[in-house]
Amino acid sequence: MDAAVGPASQTALVVMGVAGAGKSTLAAALAERLDAVFVEADDLHSVEAKAQMAAGMPLTDEDRWPWLARVAARARDERVEGRAVVVSCSALKRSYREFLTRVSGTELAFVHVHGTESQLAERIGARAGHFMPASMLTSQLATLEPLSADEHGFVVALELPVVDAVDRTLDYLKRNA
């Protein structure tokens, strides 16, 4: 565990981005390094939302708010119990990120894993067993609102080796504690 940003840290991390960016891989590696709880937001989608996405139909904001509330509640619950938490969640819009921060009641730092459309499409095509089809990438990219300069977070390139992305995230947290 990295003592500077471990369980005593007041910051919870949200690894964000579109499908195929490697959010879950990076979030799990960060959680392991920080001795933190890893929360996979995809697991908190309703059965109906997963079926809708699997059918190639994008979720609407109305579909997403209950899911985002479950994600925020889980982050809040972990922090209330004194545990560090790393969440893998698309968090595509600024309003979603603001909602997650407000409802979780904790400071969130966002790590946006970003790549080109072709990189993302290749990654989505290579993964098996996920409910999100490659056809959904276009709608996710259209929905994506990159982090603004006034948001607590930074961008990491998806082609970075995971260990380097973890190190950059920890460096960011130390500099912005």
Rank of each mutant, 00 (worst) to 15 (best):
E81M: 14
F99I: 05
E151G: 06
R74D: 11
S90C: 12
Q119Y: 06
V103Y: 11
R127I: 10
A142C: 10
I124P: 10
V87E: 01
F99N: 03
V85D: 02
A134G: 11
V156E: 04
S139M: 05
S104A: 12
Q140D: 04
S139W: 03
T143Y: 02
C89P: 07
L120S: 12
A109C: 15
T101E: 05
G105F: 00
E78A: 15
S148L: 12
T101Q: 08
H152N: 12
A157V: 05
E117R: 15
V85M: 04
L147I: 01
M136R: 04
L100V: 04
R102S: 12
V80Q: 13
C89M: 04
L92P: 07
S104T: 04
S139F: 02
L137H: 11
F131C: 11
R76L: 09
V113D: 09
A72F: 06
A73L: 13
R94E: 00
S95T: 14
M136N: 08
L158V: 08
T116Y: 06
V155S: 08
S148D: 08
A84T: 03
R102V: 07
S148N: 06
L144R: 03
R83G: 05
A142G: 15
S118E: 15
H114D: 12
F154G: 07
L108I: 02
P146S: 12
S139I: 03
A69P: 02
L158Q: 12
L120P: 14
L141K: 06
L144Y: 01
P133I: 13
A73Q: 15
E81L: 15
A149V: 12
R83T: 01
C89S: 06
G82M: 05
A75P: 04
S118T: 15
A126H: 12
L137T: 07
H152K: 13
V111R: 01
H130R: 11
L141S: 04
V87T: 05
R83K: 14
D77V: 13
A73N: 14
M136F: 02
D150A: 14
Q140A: 06
R70M: 10
H152R: 13
E98P: 06
A72V: 04
C89L: 06
